[in-house]
Write a protein that binds this DNA or RNA. Structure first.
Lengths: 150, 150
DNA sequence: TATTGTTATACTCTATAACTATA
DNA sequence: TATAGTTATAGAGTATAACAATA
């Protein structure tokens, strides 16, 4: 028999955000297993696809990933033949999707559409557009609240 | 000069959830540094405070933390004198807050209130109760979507 | 046979520090 | 001096496998 505890944290907005995020990321992770990509890798493909020639530093800034952590991420996508680097600047490289990368990118896009659709039903009852606005506001609040970063 | 990339992921609900969650968890983490506790540890204190005598397996199930990962978590809180174990079952132990743990728990509660208040302004414009309901629905959706767990 | 608690382990994610080359 | 890319490394968080004691 499983006893259910009283959970005061379930009233907390931050806690709910984290739990909801975990559930959706887990679902996306399972869906992306079909193309052997993790959520971060899939997001990078989408981003490079939408911004051909962008640098890996730009990708990192957009997704909130440090330069040091971008290195193995990009290296792996290049090793798998999905991404290509071309000298841009002497110190920076322009990133583009390979032909194979474009195929993967299209598949990722379809997988993400299906993923979002699985949750759309839940959100329809709660004014999805306003929900999106609220989350965007919270996500954008980082600068205002952050004290450690420079 | 910083170039801004077009970010198709910013339209995705799951992506927004993850970013918003990261922002709030970072803020909570900074706030909890005042009591030298991480968000997980603080949540465990709150949970044990609300459910005196509960077992560590029950805490783990409630918070979605595996038994193997609960061990060092609980051990650390006991080592710091915030939590106490008392034999309950022969194989399970009842968890309770120590006097010191109760003090920390009260401080954690105040810190979390202030943390939520910092974001309340953003959420007030978006019907906070409905937002809470929507996130609860998504978080509770885990069973319906999950295929790997048993 | 199932559950609690535990040990050991491994992988991912994220973070800092320090370095090279270039602007 | 600042930025791009890199290397090495360390700390969380989370996952599995396997085990002992108990129900």
């Amino acid at each position: 028999m499983v006893k259910a505890l009283r959970d005061p944290a379930s009233d907390r907005f931050g806690y709910l955000l984290r739990r909801a995020s975990t559930v959706m990321m887990a679902d996306l992770g399972r869906a992306l297993a079909a193309v052997t990509l993790r959520p971060v890798e899939a997001t990078i493909l989408i981003l490079v696809g939408a911004n051909p020639g962008c640098t890996q530093a730009e990708v990192g800034r957009t997704l909130g990933i440090r330069g040091a952590n971008m290195v193995p991420l990009i290296a792996r996508l290049i090793a798998r033949g999905l991404l290509a680097k071309s000298r841009a600047d002497g110190r920076s490289h322009g990133l583009t999707l390979t032909a194979s990368g474009q195929v993967s990118c299209a598949r990722v896009d379809a997988i993400m559409d299906a993923h979002e659709a699985r949750f759309a039903g839940l959100l329809a009852a709660y004014d999805a557009p306003r929900l999106r606005d609220a989350l965007t506001a919270v996500a954008a609040h980082s600068e205002g609240v952050t004290t450690s970063d420079t």
